[in-house]
Design a protein around this nucleic acid. Sequence first.
DNA 1: TCAAAAGTGTTCCTCATACACCCATGC
DNA 2: GCATGGGTGTATGAGGAACACTTTTGA
Lengths: 242, 242
Amino acid sequence: MSINTTHENINTWLSHLKEDYKVAISVDCVIFGYDNQELKVLLLESNMPPFEGQESLVGDLVRPSETLDDAAQRILEQRTGIINLYLEQVATFSDIDRHPLGRVISTAYYSLIKVQDYAPEVKPDGLKVTWKSIQDINQLAFDHNLILNTCLQMLQRRVREKPIGFSLLPHKFTLKQLQSLYEAILGIKLDKRNFRRKIKNSEILIEHSESQQDVRHRPAKYYSFNKENYNRKLEAGYSFDI
Amino acid sequence: MSINTTHENINTWLSHLKEDYKVAISVDCVIFGYDNQELKVLLLESNMPPFEGQESLVGDLVRPSETLDDAAQRILEQRTGIINLYLEQVATFSDIDRHPLGRVISTAYYSLIKVQDYAPEVKPDGLKVTWKSIQDINQLAFDHNLILNTCLQMLQRRVREKPIGFSLLPHKFTLKQLQSLYEAILGIKLDKRNFRRKIKNSEILIEHSESQQDVRHRPAKYYSFNKENYNRKLEAGYSFDI
DNA sequence: TCAAAAGTGTTCCTCATACACCCATGC
DNA sequence: GCATGGGTGTATGAGGAACACTTTTGA
């Protein structure tokens, strides 16, 4: 922000700060999960006009005493019980009439969690929280479809250039699960052999001795993300890329 | 923004909107230019405490009646006279104490112009506007160093994946100028032969019959960006990449 | 004729892509 | 023994990286 102005001196500027130029700020969190071969998003069911019955993203107003990053963490915790999740800022949405009750500008954040680690039944503040497949999402409250799409594009970009996909899977996963995850996020089919070669060459997986059990086909081996080795390779100039 | 809450009903929510939860919003524009082999940024000289004498980005408060995109265009025009420039949103900065006069959250935008098309002498509102080389920038007002760095990273990313570099050069340019531009933005050296082959293979340049004049060496041919052909190739699935 | 930058091809190597069959298990 | 998904290797082509000399001009 610049305060360089000869037209408006400090006093008028200060009065602007107090009065006319203020609007409310909110954050909206797009929390992605992955289950049953499908990419999902955490949604709240709205109970307020004019959006009763519609679903919305996890969001609320930002307090004047907190940063956007802090607000995103606080609101996510209050609304879902999820604590200490790293959220990445995506974009800020400012259409004049995006909120029916007044001028509210909203900054969107996204993150990823393992659905196994979060049971929506918790509902810390009594709101209905549900996982919903991206495919099944229709009309959301406010401009949340736009926000969701923007965050999804960010996810698609990031998942190709950073090993964040693992944070959607259980600690131990099969290569098939990993491939299906990428296919679900990117919306494309990948070649099995090429995918496996690429992943294995990258040397960022730990291969476990255990395999699947009770499957009526050849059991798949379990793998985990090797964060230590990834960090080591990062420092050596490695750049992840699917 | 979500209004789904059982703790705060509509009325208290509305009062929040009117009172406690309001902060001021600003935009800051990072306008890049290129001249004399150097990447430059448009800066204003600050005349207000505690930043007198320091330089700042082109910014101001957003009005409650305009979107952030509109505000960025308006403020850029008022402060510099530059009209109708497409600005891309980069990020929103919200540190509590980023502004000495109160809580101001700022959304950053960036864009590129040809320095030939803009004479800073114009100074529409009487402020000093200057081009400054990225290299020579020291301490800026507010958190503008952080904002500038963030926008520079965005530029470095974008310039590799979209043919936006041309908007920094004169209409007609030499391949050497184009290569130097990329080197200045990315801060790396490029191989002359590989660069020229890549650019020529991309078929997005028009080769003019004219060449440089009055240079004491073999004169270079002039080229222009072939926007029509680029758009045609885009639709055919082409993706620019340097 | 010299200085200064323009312009030009080839080799090597890495990596993306396309593709088909055998293996281990539960039923 | 059969259905189901797991697991593996190779050949081809495209494109990135490294690299040095000749050409054109003005002074």
